[in-house]
Design a protein around this nucleic acid. Sequence first.
DNA 1: CCATCTTTGTGCACGCGTTCACAAAGGCAT
DNA 2: ATGCCTTTGTGAACGCGTGCACAAAGATGG
Lengths: 262, 262
Amino acid sequence: MATGRTHRPATRSRGIPEATVARLPLYLRALTALSERSVPTVSSEELATAAGVNSAKLRKDFSYLGSYGTRGVGYDVEYLVYQISRELGLTQDWPVVIVGIGNLGAALANYGGFASRGFRVAALIDADPAMAGKPVAGLPVRHTDELESIISDNGVSIGVIATPAGAAQQVCDRLVAAGITSILNFAPTVLSVPEGVDVRKVDLSIELQILAFHEQRKAGEEAGQGPAAAPAQPRQGTQARTAAAAASRKGPEGDVPAVMPA
Amino acid sequence: MATGRTHRPATRSRGIPEATVARLPLYLRALTALSERSVPTVSSEELATAAGVNSAKLRKDFSYLGSYGTRGVGYDVEYLVYQISRELGLTQDWPVVIVGIGNLGAALANYGGFASRGFRVAALIDADPAMAGKPVAGLPVRHTDELESIISDNGVSIGVIATPAGAAQQVCDRLVAAGITSILNFAPTVLSVPEGVDVRKVDLSIELQILAFHEQRKAGEEAGQGPAAAPAQPRQGTQARTAAAAASRKGPEGDVPAVMPA
DNA sequence: CCATCTTTGTGCACGCGTTCACAAAGGCAT
DNA sequence: ATGCCTTTGTGAACGCGTGCACAAAGATGG
């Protein structure tokens, strides 16, 4: 997972819990696959397996949307696809702008999963004048100067930020000023936005770090007993702690300046 | 957020809650920035703001690691960077393989955030023979045939899957068989893995769908009263529902195995 | 029409995560 | 030393999310 929603503590939107909303796309994907194979109905058990969740959870999730199942039979695939799509707002067309057409931006522009779900890439925007006009994924890259006009002309409300971290907040501010109210942020920075603007963050290196944590734990368990090479520094008393802190800078008990400069 | 951990319900690893582990990289990033500016100490309040979280949460998170602060003063930046890095396992080198060198795979290979956090791209692997040998991000792309040998020769335990959905499970199986125990999956599929293997999933289109949901809600509130253009199909009576369901298919009871063959 | 069987929808309990609020701890000035 | 001021660390309460387990609902066959 990448990380989550930024503000909006857990605003249960219209009674549908956030956790459920986050799973709806999962169900939708599984259902779409079934639909393509012309499967007419599916039980909560089967669908749950396909979506990788627990069947009780799935049933409870669906219960927030309404009573769309038939007891003794299951759920009608086509009907459920429609209901979930409508609930997620995918029955309408969402124009999207992608800002920052580096490797990642280009990958996003080429990503097929967008178009098939009601998202349309309205424009690709980059600050580099050399990029302007160059076609990426069939669209000419536009210069940042045009950002505001592109957004208002196309009625765009969703923006994707794929710039370097340094430029992200500035781009974000311009997007918001231009009327964007939902942002998907790939830059490794915390964006600050005014009330009413939703930000979701996807951070590639964070995901890897979380994996590393568990990986280290597995390796540690396997080898010794305790976690990792752990008991070395379990929880020091105050003075020892302070000493270690000092040591990490230079001291006699020299223990490495710690970690990367970057 | 992209979506989260797959199995392991909430295994509180060594007493550190999952939710806390997921935030540690966030703190680490903020601390690293402070470190670069040679800020010696930071209060929980300041750091929390920089990381985009609540200060009480941050203090509680740190309390799981130990008592690393000084009352009345705050936290020593360098020392904390070291402690968090160690906890996350970033003081060691993690070789990583990326499978599937399309747009996304290439973007990942070029992503600087990995190298600076202890992750080293050991190899780029693709099934297309035409890609073999072609340099991407300074590394020659290797063919899938070499997958097993690359992993064992380099002692790789973390794999990144950036293939199309159709190939993901197959690649996953080979990675696991070759000894990989942590997988970061970018393919839009539910991977099934044996016990002991961690999978984290990043799904670009799911993030957008969640944004669309909130966006729709905002638009709906603004315009009318109720949610979106909703009342159109609010919750039909049973017979109407069944009729719609029947219309969408054909046979009386045509069944089909349901769920995927794989 | 009745009995039986399947599967949904949900009441309930439990546990994790978040937040509040405050006592304890340390620094610093006098 | 002593007292004040700042900031941590955490006990406790609360709320959300999850999973169990079962009653209700509908289909199906006789």
